[in-house]
């Protein structure tokens, strides 16, 4: 299973700070597409970065079973 961490608006619309995902391995691009279809409340994932095990990942990165993924909407620290 992949653990997907949610922050900011994503956490609010789902009401959880993490969700589990059974389908692995899967690329970042495919996961984003499937999440967008599965969670109708999600804001658009177009501008959302994905981190795999605390590292930014590109669309082709393959996520493995046991990985921790985070959805990172545009940041606004500082």
């Amino acid at each position: 299973m992949i653990q997907i961490l949610l922050f900011a608006r994503f956490q609010e619309v789902v009401g959880e700070d993490a969700i589990g995902w059974q389908d692995a391995p899967i690329t970042v691009a495919a996961l984003k597409e499937q999440l967008q279809r599965t969670y109708e409340k999600f804001p658009s994932l177009d501008n959302v970065m994905v981190a795999v095990n605390e590292q930014y990942a590109d669309n082709e990165t393959e996520i493995q079973d046991g990985d921790t993924v985070a959805l990172i909407p545009p940041v606004s620290g500082g």
């Binding site: 804001p43 985070a70 909407p73 940041v75 606004s76 500082g78």
Partner: peptide
């Protein structure tokens, strides 16, 4: 402001918004 995963939620007099959540702000 580019790479650190921190998010700011504004609490205004007339509502709230996660900054960076709007389409017109930063995209990747």
């Amino acid at each position: 402001k580019e790479i650190v995963p921190i998010w700011k939620k504004e609490h205004w007099e007339d509502g709230t918004m996660w900054v960076g959540d709007q389409k017109e702000t930063t995209a990747y």
